[in-house]
Design a protein around this nucleic acid. Structure first.
Length: 263
DNA sequence: TCTTTATGGTGAG
DNA sequence: TCACCCTAAAGAT
Protein backbone atom coordinates (compact mmCIF):
# COMPACT_ATOMS: atom_id res chain seq x y z
CA UNK A 1 0.00 0.00 0.00
CA UNK A 2 2.41 2.53 -1.26
CA UNK A 3 2.65 6.25 -1.75
CA UNK A 4 5.68 7.82 -3.40
CA UNK A 5 7.92 7.65 -0.36
CA UNK A 6 7.52 3.84 -0.28
CA UNK A 7 8.75 3.48 -3.85
CA UNK A 8 11.76 5.75 -3.34
CA UNK A 9 12.65 3.83 -0.21
CA UNK A 10 12.26 0.63 -2.17
CA UNK A 11 14.56 1.85 -4.96
CA UNK A 12 17.15 2.75 -2.36
CA UNK A 13 16.96 -0.63 -0.64
CA UNK A 14 17.03 -2.50 -3.95
CA UNK A 15 20.17 -0.66 -5.02
CA UNK A 16 21.81 -1.43 -1.73
CA UNK A 17 20.99 -5.13 -1.59
CA UNK A 18 21.00 -6.27 -5.22
CA UNK A 19 24.05 -4.59 -6.70
CA UNK A 20 26.62 -5.33 -7.99
CA UNK A 21 26.45 -9.07 -8.59
CA UNK A 22 24.16 -10.83 -11.12
CA UNK A 23 20.64 -11.69 -9.94
CA UNK A 24 18.70 -14.90 -10.10
CA UNK A 25 15.28 -13.97 -11.52
CA UNK A 26 12.28 -16.33 -11.44
CA UNK A 27 8.50 -16.17 -11.50
CA UNK A 28 7.27 -18.72 -8.94
CA UNK A 29 3.66 -17.79 -9.77
CA UNK A 30 4.38 -18.35 -13.46
CA UNK A 31 2.85 -15.19 -14.89
CA UNK A 32 6.20 -13.52 -15.58
CA UNK A 33 8.30 -16.52 -16.56
CA UNK A 34 9.63 -15.54 -19.99
CA UNK A 35 10.34 -12.02 -18.79
CA UNK A 36 12.12 -13.23 -15.68
CA UNK A 37 14.28 -15.42 -17.88
CA UNK A 38 15.40 -12.27 -19.73
CA UNK A 39 16.55 -10.72 -16.47
CA UNK A 40 18.12 -13.84 -15.03
CA UNK A 41 21.87 -13.54 -14.64
CA UNK A 42 22.08 -9.81 -15.33
CA UNK A 43 23.48 -7.06 -13.12
CA UNK A 44 21.32 -4.23 -11.80
CA UNK A 45 22.63 -0.85 -12.90
CA UNK A 46 20.10 1.16 -10.94
CA UNK A 47 16.61 1.16 -9.49
CA UNK A 48 14.85 4.50 -9.76
CA UNK A 49 11.48 5.87 -8.67
CA UNK A 50 9.23 8.51 -10.19
CA UNK A 51 6.13 9.00 -8.13
CA UNK A 52 4.61 5.59 -7.56
CA UNK A 53 6.43 4.04 -10.52
CA UNK A 54 9.57 1.96 -10.10
CA UNK A 55 12.07 1.38 -12.90
CA UNK A 56 14.87 -1.15 -12.65
CA UNK A 57 17.63 -0.97 -15.23
CA UNK A 58 19.49 -4.25 -15.68
CA UNK A 59 22.61 -4.39 -17.84
CA UNK A 60 21.80 -5.82 -21.26
CA UNK A 61 18.06 -6.21 -20.60
CA UNK A 62 14.89 -4.16 -21.16
CA UNK A 63 13.71 -1.88 -18.36
CA UNK A 64 11.69 -3.51 -15.62
CA UNK A 65 8.64 -1.33 -14.91
CA UNK A 66 6.73 -1.94 -11.69
CA UNK A 67 3.69 -0.23 -10.20
CA UNK A 68 2.45 -1.76 -6.97
CA UNK A 69 -1.07 -0.39 -7.20
CA UNK A 70 -3.24 -0.67 -4.15
CA UNK A 71 -2.26 -4.12 -2.98
CA UNK A 72 1.13 -4.87 -4.48
CA UNK A 73 4.14 -5.57 -2.29
CA UNK A 74 7.86 -5.94 -2.93
CA UNK A 75 9.29 -7.53 0.16
CA UNK A 76 12.87 -8.16 1.17
CA UNK A 77 13.57 -11.58 2.65
CA UNK A 78 16.54 -13.74 3.53
CA UNK A 79 18.31 -15.37 0.58
CA UNK A 80 16.95 -18.82 1.39
CA UNK A 81 13.39 -17.70 2.21
CA UNK A 82 10.62 -20.15 1.47
CA UNK A 83 8.22 -19.30 -1.37
CA UNK A 84 4.84 -18.35 0.06
CA UNK A 85 1.87 -16.79 -1.72
CA UNK A 86 1.56 -15.69 -5.33
CA UNK A 87 5.04 -14.40 -6.15
CA UNK A 88 5.05 -12.73 -9.57
CA UNK A 89 8.77 -12.08 -9.54
CA UNK A 90 11.57 -13.21 -7.26
CA UNK A 91 14.97 -11.55 -7.45
CA UNK A 92 17.77 -13.14 -5.50
CA UNK A 93 21.15 -11.55 -4.97
CA UNK A 94 24.05 -12.58 -2.77
CA UNK A 95 22.60 -10.85 0.27
CA UNK A 96 18.83 -10.80 -0.18
CA UNK A 97 15.76 -12.15 -1.89
CA UNK A 98 13.01 -9.81 -3.10
CA UNK A 99 9.47 -11.12 -3.66
CA UNK A 100 6.99 -9.13 -5.73
CA UNK A 101 3.30 -9.92 -5.18
CA UNK A 102 0.09 -8.40 -6.49
CA UNK A 103 1.57 -5.62 -8.65
CA UNK A 104 -0.71 -3.57 -10.86
CA UNK A 105 2.06 -3.32 -13.43
CA UNK A 106 5.05 -5.60 -13.90
CA UNK A 107 6.48 -5.48 -17.39
CA UNK A 108 9.63 -5.25 -19.47
CA UNK A 109 9.61 -2.09 -21.57
CA UNK A 110 11.95 -0.11 -23.82
CA UNK A 111 13.11 3.46 -23.30
CA UNK A 112 10.35 4.92 -25.51
CA UNK A 113 7.65 3.26 -23.42
CA UNK A 114 9.33 4.50 -20.26
CA UNK A 115 9.30 8.04 -21.63
CA UNK A 116 5.59 7.71 -22.36
CA UNK A 117 5.03 6.81 -18.72
CA UNK A 118 7.10 9.61 -17.22
CA UNK A 119 5.75 12.19 -19.69
CA UNK A 120 2.36 11.75 -18.08
CA UNK A 121 3.72 12.34 -14.60
CA UNK A 122 4.03 15.66 -12.84
CA UNK A 123 7.10 16.63 -10.83
CA UNK A 124 8.06 14.27 -8.01
CA UNK A 125 9.22 16.21 -4.92
CA UNK A 126 11.70 13.45 -4.13
CA UNK A 127 13.50 13.74 -7.45
CA UNK A 128 16.36 16.13 -8.03
CA UNK A 129 15.01 16.99 -11.48
CA UNK A 130 11.64 18.12 -10.09
CA UNK A 131 10.47 21.58 -11.12
CA UNK A 132 8.31 23.19 -8.40
CA UNK A 133 7.05 25.82 -10.83
CA UNK A 134 5.53 23.09 -12.95
CA UNK A 135 3.54 22.03 -9.90
CA UNK A 136 2.40 25.59 -9.25
CA UNK A 137 1.42 26.15 -12.89
CA UNK A 138 -0.51 22.89 -13.17
CA UNK A 139 -2.36 23.46 -9.92
CA UNK A 140 -3.47 26.87 -11.09
CA UNK A 141 -5.07 25.29 -14.15
CA UNK A 142 -7.17 22.86 -12.09
CA UNK A 143 -10.71 23.68 -11.07
CA UNK A 144 -10.79 20.46 -9.06
CA UNK A 145 -10.88 20.54 -5.28
CA UNK A 146 -7.38 20.75 -3.81
CA UNK A 147 -7.82 17.31 -2.30
CA UNK A 148 -8.52 15.87 -5.75
CA UNK A 149 -5.73 17.77 -7.49
CA UNK A 150 -3.18 16.43 -5.01
CA UNK A 151 -4.09 12.89 -6.10
CA UNK A 152 -3.66 13.76 -9.77
CA UNK A 153 -0.31 12.22 -10.68
CA UNK A 154 0.10 14.62 -13.62
CA UNK A 155 0.08 17.56 -11.20
CA UNK A 156 2.39 16.09 -8.57
CA UNK A 157 3.69 12.54 -8.65
CA UNK A 158 3.74 10.34 -5.57
CA UNK A 159 0.92 11.70 -3.41
CA UNK A 160 -1.68 9.16 -2.29
CA UNK A 161 -4.79 9.10 -0.17
CA UNK A 162 -3.05 9.45 3.20
CA UNK A 163 -0.82 12.39 2.31
CA UNK A 164 -3.54 14.28 0.43
CA UNK A 165 -5.77 14.55 3.49
CA UNK A 166 -2.85 15.24 5.80
CA UNK A 167 -1.45 17.98 3.54
CA UNK A 168 -4.79 19.81 3.36
CA UNK A 169 -4.93 19.68 7.14
CA UNK A 170 -1.32 20.86 7.63
CA UNK A 171 -1.94 23.73 5.21
CA UNK A 172 -5.18 24.61 7.01
CA UNK A 173 -7.14 24.50 3.76
CA UNK A 174 -10.64 23.10 3.22
CA UNK A 175 -10.11 20.03 1.00
CA UNK A 176 -12.92 21.19 -1.30
CA UNK A 177 -11.27 24.51 -2.14
CA UNK A 178 -10.77 24.66 -5.92
CA UNK A 179 -7.06 24.35 -6.67
CA UNK A 180 -7.09 27.38 -8.96
CA UNK A 181 -8.26 29.59 -6.09
CA UNK A 182 -5.08 28.99 -4.07
CA UNK A 183 -2.47 31.72 -3.84
CA UNK A 184 1.04 31.26 -5.17
CA UNK A 185 2.28 31.35 -1.59
CA UNK A 186 -0.08 28.58 -0.60
CA UNK A 187 1.07 26.46 -3.53
CA UNK A 188 4.71 27.01 -2.66
CA UNK A 189 3.95 26.02 0.90
CA UNK A 190 2.25 22.84 -0.30
CA UNK A 191 5.27 21.93 -2.44
CA UNK A 192 7.70 22.51 0.42
CA UNK A 193 5.45 20.47 2.67
CA UNK A 194 5.33 17.61 0.18
CA UNK A 195 9.10 17.64 -0.15
CA UNK A 196 9.86 17.53 3.56
CA UNK A 197 7.06 15.13 4.42
CA UNK A 198 7.96 12.63 1.70
CA UNK A 199 11.62 12.79 2.68
CA UNK A 200 10.66 12.02 6.25
CA UNK A 201 8.47 9.18 4.97
CA UNK A 202 11.45 7.67 3.13
CA UNK A 203 13.65 7.95 6.20
CA UNK A 204 11.12 6.45 8.61
CA UNK A 205 9.64 4.07 6.02
CA UNK A 206 6.15 5.10 7.15
CA UNK A 207 3.98 8.18 7.07
CA UNK A 208 4.32 10.43 10.11
CA UNK A 209 2.84 13.90 9.63
CA UNK A 210 2.21 14.70 13.28
CA UNK A 211 4.48 17.24 14.95
CA UNK A 212 6.47 15.11 17.44
CA UNK A 213 6.47 17.98 19.95
CA UNK A 214 2.73 17.54 20.38
CA UNK A 215 3.28 14.00 21.53
CA UNK A 216 6.57 14.41 23.38
CA UNK A 217 8.50 11.76 21.45
CA UNK A 218 10.74 11.73 18.40
CA UNK A 219 9.12 11.15 15.00
CA UNK A 220 10.84 7.77 14.84
CA UNK A 221 9.25 6.68 18.10
CA UNK A 222 5.80 8.04 17.32
CA UNK A 223 3.10 5.46 18.12
CA UNK A 224 1.24 4.35 15.00
CA UNK A 225 -2.12 5.52 16.31
CA UNK A 226 -0.77 9.01 17.01
CA UNK A 227 1.14 9.76 13.82
CA UNK A 228 -1.59 11.32 11.64
CA UNK A 229 -3.95 14.27 12.09
CA UNK A 230 -7.02 13.26 10.13
CA UNK A 231 -6.60 10.12 8.02
CA UNK A 232 -9.12 7.47 9.12
CA UNK A 233 -9.96 9.47 12.23
CA UNK A 234 -13.59 10.36 11.55
CA UNK A 235 -15.55 10.97 14.75
CA UNK A 236 -12.38 11.36 16.82
CA UNK A 237 -11.26 14.69 18.28
CA UNK A 238 -8.86 16.88 16.31
CA UNK A 239 -5.38 16.76 17.89
CA UNK A 240 -5.25 20.56 17.87
CA UNK A 241 -8.75 21.95 18.40
CA UNK A 242 -10.69 18.97 19.72
CA UNK A 243 -13.45 19.35 17.14
CA UNK A 244 -14.70 16.16 15.52
CA UNK A 245 -12.83 14.93 12.41
CA UNK A 246 -15.15 14.46 9.45
CA UNK A 247 -15.21 12.12 6.47
CA UNK A 248 -16.08 13.18 2.93
CA UNK A 249 -15.82 11.62 -0.50
CA UNK A 250 -13.63 13.61 -2.89
CA UNK A 251 -12.43 12.29 -6.25
CA UNK A 252 -14.25 9.02 -5.51
CA UNK A 253 -12.12 8.32 -2.48
CA UNK A 254 -12.36 8.98 1.20
CA UNK A 255 -11.03 12.26 2.48
CA UNK A 256 -10.81 13.35 6.11
CA UNK A 257 -10.65 16.87 7.49
CA UNK A 258 -11.17 19.03 10.55
CA UNK A 259 -14.05 21.48 9.96
CA UNK A 260 -12.52 23.99 12.38
CA UNK A 261 -8.81 23.90 11.45
CA UNK A 262 -9.55 23.82 7.72
CA UNK A 263 -11.82 26.64 6.70
C1' DT B 1 -14.70 -18.91 8.43
C1' DC B 2 -16.43 -15.35 5.77
C1' DT B 3 -16.49 -10.53 4.26
C1' DT B 4 -14.53 -6.10 3.88
C1' DT B 5 -11.05 -2.96 3.18
C1' DA B 6 -6.66 -0.85 1.32
C1' DT B 7 -1.46 4.36 1.10
C1' DG B 8 -4.17 2.71 -6.94
C1' DG B 9 -5.19 2.90 -11.49
C1' DT B 10 -7.28 1.29 -16.17
C1' DG B 11 -10.48 0.57 -19.71
C1' DA B 12 -15.16 -0.13 -21.39
C1' DG B 13 -19.43 2.14 -22.16
C1' DT C 1 -19.45 6.75 -14.34
C1' DC C 2 -18.77 2.08 -13.34
C1' DA C 3 -16.79 -2.46 -13.21
C1' DC C 4 -12.81 -4.58 -12.61
C1' DC C 5 -7.98 -6.17 -11.52
C1' DC C 6 -4.67 -8.18 -8.10
C1' DT C 7 -3.40 -9.97 -2.84
C1' DA C 8 -3.34 -9.97 2.11
C1' DA C 9 -4.56 -8.18 6.48
C1' DA C 10 -8.23 -6.72 9.37
C1' DG C 11 -12.74 -7.03 10.81
C1' DA C 12 -17.13 -9.36 11.29
C1' DT C 13 -19.65 -13.65 12.38
Amino acid sequence: MPEGHTIHRLAKDLNKTIRPTPVIATSPQGRFETEAAQLDGSVLNAAEAWGKHLFMDFEGAPLLHIHLGLIGKFRKKTVDAEETGAIRLRLTSESATWDLTGPMICALIDDDDAAKVTDKLGPDPLRKDADPEQFTARMKRKKLPLSAALLDQSVIAGIGNVYRSEFCYLAGIDPNTPANQLSTDQLHELWEMATSQLKLGVRLNRIVTRNPDEVGVTAAKMPNDERLYVYKREGQPCHRCNDEIRLAEIAKRKAWYCPTCQS
